[in-house]
Design a protein around this nucleic acid. Structure first.
Lengths: 177, 177
DNA sequence: GACACTATTTATAACAG
DNA sequence: TCTGTTATAAATAGTGT
């Protein structure tokens, strides 16, 4: 018997609370099911008891995941938004950085030079000149290393192989100079 | 009046269905609220009407996100991972692209040349040489444009300004040659 | 469409076994 | 702790405004 009007406030007695939780949970789920059938709706109920026990209801012919995905799509107060926005921002910045890097590379390939003013062209020219020298030196050094290695290998390699490399080296050497 | 036992089956009349949906939804939310207070529980209800309208209930002092996060932790249903993984993958790829672009630029600044073999050095050398020429030509052309502009402006500019620019132009010209 | 009424059904708090 | 009973509160279908 519901003796006296129910006061809606926390049931302090642990046992009564537990019993009421169980009963009302069933009631709630029953109502949810009726609503589903009567009104052709989809309902997801997720609940945690005071002891953090999970109970859920989900309308037949759907899944909780489906409902949550839809919820995410439809609702503006997007539970995922904090993460999502942050990642979107990161992605945006990375794309922007990549774009700038690509422009730099293009300019170092002689493209998009129109965008540069005379000062920028001068810097770039100087930079290219320096790097060109560095690369040339490096290549020369690399060739030097190779000929050293070849000298050491010469005893075990055929005179033909040795000669072939020497020819290549010399051609590169004069190309470089 | 609830005249006659309610049959739990879809209400075919569109209007009645809509009304019942609204009424029962309120009833359900009220019950959920009572359960929250009486039993110290947390409840999340997400529902979609037959016309895909979203309605939700969430216990006070919590958020839908919290409940869903907890739900995900406790149950095995993996709600966000699909989205999350996809974005992580995108980010990873962008960072990788970014890294490669930076390496290319460094090499075009004469750094990190150790990583290149002789063939790569040769390509790079050639590329640098070509670009250097392009940049030089471009600068020369840019200077040419400036002197043209200056010629046209000469009537309205002082002879001093004109002479000063010409000196600069000539210094650049001989620098370029 | 929202609200008011009301006969009835339904849910349930307190209690009992 | 659970299951059942029951007096009573609450919900609500159908109707009217």
């Amino acid at each position: 018997m519901a003796r006296g009007k129910i006061q809606i406030k926390r049931i302090e007695n642990q046992t009564n609370r537990q019993v009421t939780y169980s009963k009302r949970r069933n009631g709630l789920f029953k109502k949810a099911h009726e609503l589903t059938v009567l009104c052709d709706a989809r309902v997801s109920i997720i609940m945690f008891s005071s002891s953090n026990k999970l109970h859920e209801f989900i309308s037949p012919n759907t899944t909780t995941k489906e409902i949550i995905d839809l919820y995410q799509t439809v609702s503006d107060v997007d539970v995922w938004s904090a993460h999502y926005e942050r990642m979107q921002e990161t992605k945006r910045k990375l794309l922007e950085t990549n774009r700038k890097l690509r422009t730099q590379i293009k300019q170092r390939l002689g493209e998009c030079l129109d965008e540069l003013d005379i000062q920028e062209l001068r810097s770039l020219e100087e930079e290219m000149e320096n790097t060109f020298k560095l690369v040339r030196e490096r290549k020369f050094k690399s060739l030097g290393n190779q000929i050293e290695t070849t000298k050491k290998k010469v005893k075990t390699s055929s005179i033909f192989t040795h000669f072939a490399f020497l020819s290549y080296y010399l051609s590169q050497y004069f190309r470089v100079m």
